[in-house]
Nucleic acid binder design. Sequence first.
RNA 1: GGAGAGAUGGCCGAGUUGGCUGAAGGCGCUCGCCUGCUAAGCGAGUGUGCGGUUAAAGCUGCACCGAGGGUUCGAAUCCCUCUCUCUCCGCCA
Length: 425
Amino acid sequence: MLEIKFVRQNLELVQDSLENRGQKNALKGFVECDSRRRAILLEVEKLKHQRNSASERIAKIKRDGKDPADLIAEMKAVSEKIKNLDGELAQEERTLRSVLMGIPNLPHTSVPVGDDEEDNLIIKTVGELPHFDFEPLAHWEIGERLGILDFERAAKITGARFALYLGLGARLERALINFMLDIQTKEHGYLEVLPPFMTNRASTTATGQLPKFEEDLFKLEGWDYYLIPTAEVPVTNIHQDEILDEVDLPRLYTAHTPCFRSEAGSYGKDTRGLIRQHQFNKVELVKFTTPESSYDELEKLLSNAETILQRLDLSYQVIELCTGDLGFSAAKTYDIEVWVPGQQKYREISSCSNFEDFQARRASIRFRRKGKKGTELVHTLNGSGLAVGRTVVAILENFQQEDGSVIIPEALRPFMDGVEKIKSA
RNA sequence: GGAGAGAUGGCCGAGUUGGCUGAAGGCGCUCGCCUGCUAAGCGAGUGUGCGGUUAAAGCUGCACCGAGGGUUCGAAUCCCUCUCUCUCCGCCA
């Protein structure tokens, strides 16, 4: 959410930004509604002041043993007026709030301007692309042949876009989770947390998934709870409605959670394999920082995620999203894309964003500077470190051998009881 | 599921026969004093949000005592609904 004062004073800027995202009507009614609200507020506050001072006089008159009936009668009318105006005020505020909640974050000035993913910038490319003397297979072929992935049975159990991992496949997933968490906690200073996998409406709204993107979420019937689409939601909300001390910043959290996404509107995309699932595992990194340090922290966050790929000897590129491709809440985003030989493409495996104070304002997460009065909103950041299922995809496809086996990257072997290779039984 | 207790400022904790209580007291924090250093001590200050005014400091209005509604001229205090926490019993991974 943007600050209402900011929107008021920068109408054109906000309007331009909305048009860049194809939402030119989002601000409709804002100006009128805002000025109505302020006019009513002025009026109602005046009346309340009148009522408050009359109350004091009434108390005094009573103490003096006299009868304040006249004044009470007068105030009765005033109270009635206040009640009506309060109702109008609430109406304007609801409208205003829903307008504000629908406005996406403003891109940071460093973000390249562009319409869609075509205009994203490749920042860097790391690692050599693997060479195969044979036609590399897609991971689902590899996994099914090795008996470590079974999509047919998963479809029977639940439906499309679910996976059943077996044996060393399940073990590989678990090893990756431990591997990632260990690096982020032991080497990069993140605190491991295990949050709830369902979040309530307020939390889900705070990070920006609601109210606009409800169709992307799984909602529990009969409850106002949602299955988390990313650990970003529960972890960012750890500090909802809190005022932190400056000395406690930055706060760094990492969490492994399953993520649940409806994938509405992605019919026909990535229908096979692990790339696009309704449920997948992810190790997430979340930071709470001061405003002045958030962009440095974004760079560190990106490199913390890159570390995982480097240790696994996977090739990847880092891209910077242009204004048109930014997510709703983000001010700046880097995506990391890993090389997927079966598709001869780089595919997204991590997304690292700075949300500045956009989420913090919605969640009311503030901090106090040492020796200074008042509070300021923190900046929140998060990134995947990494999406686990897609990491399995990358390992199976990049390290597949002609005989159908898959070599386990060395760094991962300690987490796999020393298994060096997955081969057919 | 049954029975009961509770939710107040950064934290702890008073206040519930409705009316100078935005809220005692303590802790913490900030500034100053004192002190070889540290600790202790002394003095002053210290909530948030939204408005108004101001060059600014400041001054000032309104709101906020879990959330929402109600009663009343007036609610932290009374009533209703909900949420959460705790204790005991039952059930259970």
